[in-house]
Amino acid sequence: MYDAISKHLFLPTPSYGLKWVEKLAGFQRSQEEFGGLWSIITYDRYINAPTKEQADKILDEILTYNQDDLIASLAVYEWLEKIVADPTSHVL
């Protein structure tokens, strides 16, 4: 999907990463904190959590992040489908 976008379109964003393109596709995350770095740090907190309650709470955040990433990818794919179906409606 990255190739299909970056090799064929010029986007009004400083990056072609999912976190930027999903905004163009109108996707809104359910969690304020996210990203590769956040996820790695949060995973580290999860495996070192002192209690099961804390571990479960952190696990929820990681799963929500992962689910958001998947739904964001779907939103970007559907956005791309609309561009393919009717290029003039979205692009210059």
């Binding site: 299909a4 064929h8 010029f10 561009i83 210059l92």
Partner: peptide, 19 residues
């Protein structure tokens, strides 16, 4: 082209993207 997209806040198509 990239700057044109940023300045106009519009998507510019170089060629139709494939599925």
């Amino acid at each position: 082209k990239q700057i044109q997209a940023l300045k106009t806040n519009r998507i510019i198509m170089a060629s139709p993207p494939p599925l």
